[in-house]
Each structure stands twice: as C-alpha cells, then as structure tokens.
Design a protein around this nucleic acid. Structure first.
Lengths: 221, 221
DNA sequence: AAATATTTTTAGACAAACCTAAAAAAAATA
DNA sequence: TATTTTTTTTAGGTTTGTCTAAAAATATTT
C-alpha cells in the first residue's frame, strides 16, 4: 500500500461520503464539502485519476475506483478507531472527538491501527454509532432507521445520533439515551408524532418528534 | 500558542537535540541530522528567525530562543508520551516505538496530550528512559551514570539504555533488566571490569563491561 | 599573510496544493 | 432550438519546502 498525502486522503474520504448518497460526485459538491474551490478540486481529480484512485472524465463527475474505496475504508477505520479511543479511554466528549481524529487519522502505520484496534477490544461502532471497518476493510452496513420508523414493541439498539449539538447532547444525557442503549417504541401519537419509549430498568417516557428523528437504531427483522 | 508545520517542528526538535551537545548549531550539522541540504537549512532558519523561534545571524550558526525551546519541549513531550503509550498499552517493542511516534508527535491538540498524559498515569520516563516534560514544559534533568560509575551498594534505578539493537534487547530481556528496574552494584572486578549486580527478588548476577556501559541509572546522593 | 579548502548563503527552479479570473462545456429556460 | 445560466476546466499565480549550482564568507594550511 502506497503512501498518500493528508490532502489526498481528505479528498478520498470526502468522495466516499458524498457518493454514499449521490452515486457520482460533482466538482462543486466536493469543493463545498472540503471548503475549497472548484478549480482546486479539478486539479486534485486529475492527480487522483493518474493514481487510479478515482474514475473521472472531464465534466462528468467522478467516483472512487476499487483502490480508492479500499483507501477510503482504511482512513475511515483509522478515524473511527481514534474516535473510540478518545471517547472511551481519554474521556473526550462526543463533540470534541471528531476534530482530533481528523488529525490522527492521517498517521498511516497499519500496525499502529491494528494494535490500537486490539487494545480497544475490536469495537464495532464509534462513539457516534458509525460502524468501524475491520482490518480487511469490511464494514457493517445493516440498515438503521430513525425512531419514527421503528416497528412498535420491538427491541432496538441506538446506533447513531445525527445532530450532536450541545443542546442535543444535554437532552440525550438527561434522558439517558446513548449509543448502544436498548429501547422499544411503545406508542406513536398522531397528534404531535411524539413517541412513548421504554428503556430497560427505566420508566417509559415521551420524546418529541424532532428528537425521535435524530435518533437512529437497529433491530432484527 | 501558534501552530507550526511538521517541517518547522522537526527543525526545532533537531536543533534542540544538537544544541544539548554543542551549544550553537551549524548549518551542516543540522542538514546532516535532518537528511536535507544546507541550502534548505538556511531557508528554514530565515523563516524560524522571523517567527522568533531561533537566534540566527548569517554565517554564525543558531540556537533556540526561549520560545523555540518551549516549543521543542512541547514536541518532545508529545513524542515521549506517545512512545510510552505505544510500548505500554499497545505492546510495541522499544525499537518500533520511535518511528510511529515521529508521526504522532505532530498532532498538536494540547488537550489530547494532557489527557493522554493523565490516562497513562503521568509517566516520568519514556521506554528509552528519557524524561518526559510535564504540561508546563518542565523536564527532569537529574544526571544519570552508567553502571560502571555507580557507587557500590547504592540503590539505583535503570533510567536509560543507549544501545537498543535486537541483540541488546534479547540480553536485557534474559537478565530481566528494563527501565525502572531497581538494582545495586555489589562488586567490580578489575580483571575484566565485569560487575556483580543484585536486583530485588533475584539472585545476584554478573554482567560484562560492555553491557554495563550501555545501561544508565540514577541514584540519590 | 596569501593561497586553498570548507562552509554557508544566494539565486533560480521545481512540485504540491491552493488561489482568481477567464474560457469552455453542459444544463436550464425562454 | 436558441439563448441564458450554471458548472467545470484551463491558464497563470502564490506559498511552502525542497533542490542544484554558483557566489560569498569563513577557516585552514602553507
């Protein structure tokens, strides 16, 4: 595995995230994502094409090659393992974790990451609930749905929280909801679309539609 | 505290190490240390001078300013804490630790380093026995001597091992000597300058002159 | 002290990653 | 479909950190 610059890695990662939604990614989209200018994106795409990390024809957008996707998963693995480390071992809060991991993810020693993984006990999700690719680049893709879309009375595990503002975290802390929390939706109220949910060992409680749409969970079908 | 590039940080660190020995550092010395060319060093010195990190007059060598020294200690702190982490938590061997720490040391979050320090239990020495500066940049400077120069029957703590080849590490492992090991020198043999040493809970043993000259320790006077 | 050798600096280039402004292509609209 | 708008690319420039080759300063030797 060759060595790539921080900048190249950031482009690869951004393309990976954008193409999850989009399929093919455009110059403007990527420029916006990376807080850079379209001209800079074009420059970089030419370079990444010669390195065979992306498929790219002028004016027709781009997507990752197999090589590119592999690299993206390596970077995402590093990022999420560091996030887990920061939160779990160093007691960083969810919001702080991301910025620091942005730097750490570019330290490229494979041995470092694999040993870190082992040290952490091979965690499968980062503190935000996103899945961590394993040493072979395999990543759990099981679909998660927001609480609104959970079937009633079905045990589910909180796997992701999309808004992570301080206000949100305050509310989540108060309600004792975090990644990994097991819960069931007991009732859906049509009046305001609020939900009655039940967490093991706790009283049932009501959560607003707004909150419920920002909490995602997984369940067995 | 401003933010410096990886390259600037490497120069600062190299100057710090060279001036320990030399007092003032020359262009060629620094170029050799950093595997770069003298012309590149001159360029960088001009820049570091405008940033007030070094004192420098053309043709007359350079040394760190107070600011520069502070920065050097921050970088050394990062480096040695990561080394400790890698060895202690991730079970890297002594030799592997340095190269990876070279990358990690440039991640500049102060909070990260201070929390790492806390997580590690505020270690005072890295795996090579070099002292770790504290959060204020204070670094232990107490003199260490090689085993040959230890007074007899005086408790001392192994603080540094100068040769770290595999052969040396194999021997040290066998003799159960590592950084932090408490020992006493019981007898010095004039015939071959070998030493009889005693480690707590172990039988006394004989170590060669060659080995003894590569092991350093500290003791209270 | 003069000549020679060494060290250091300057001058000018280059690659990486970015930028602005203008040109070209594609998409949207009349 | 022709025109206008938007998107993307090209052209040319900047900064950082490097380089080589030549010039200048300092050190060493005779």
């Amino acid at each position: 595995m060759l060595n790539y610059s921080t900048s190249e890695e950031n482009y690869i990662k951004a393309i990976f995230h954008l193409q999850q939604a989009d399929g093919t990614v455009t110059t403007n989209e990527l420029a916006a994502e990376l807080n850079t200018k379209p001209a800079s994106v074009t420059d970089m795409m030419k370079k990444l094409k010669t390195k065979k990390l992306v498929h790219y024809e002028a004016y027709h957008g781009f997507r990752l090659s197999n090589e590119g996707r592999k690299l993206a998963l390596i970077i995402i693995r590093r990022h999420r393992l560091w996030e887990f480390f920061l939160a779990e071992k160093l007691k960083f809060s969810w919001e702080e974790v991301h910025a620091v991991a942005e730097d750490l993810e570019h330290v490229s020693s494979k041995k470092l990451i694999d040993k870190l993984d082992e040290f952490l006990g091979f965690p499968r999700f980062d503190p935000h609930g996103d899945p961590i690719p394993d040493a072979n680049g395999k990543i759990e893709t099981s679909k998660q749905v927001c609480l609104q879309d959970l079937p009633l009375n079905t045990l589910a595990v909180v796997s992701h929280v999309s808004d992570q503002s301080n206000e949100m975290l305050e509310l989540l802390g108060h309600k004792k909801i975090r990644i990994g929390t097991k819960l069931e939706v007991r009732k859906k109220f049509n009046f305001d679309h609020s939900l009655e949910i039940k967490i093991r060992q706790q009283q049932a409680m009501n959560i607003s539609e707004q909150l419920s749409k920002n909490i995602f969970a997984k369940y067995d079908e």
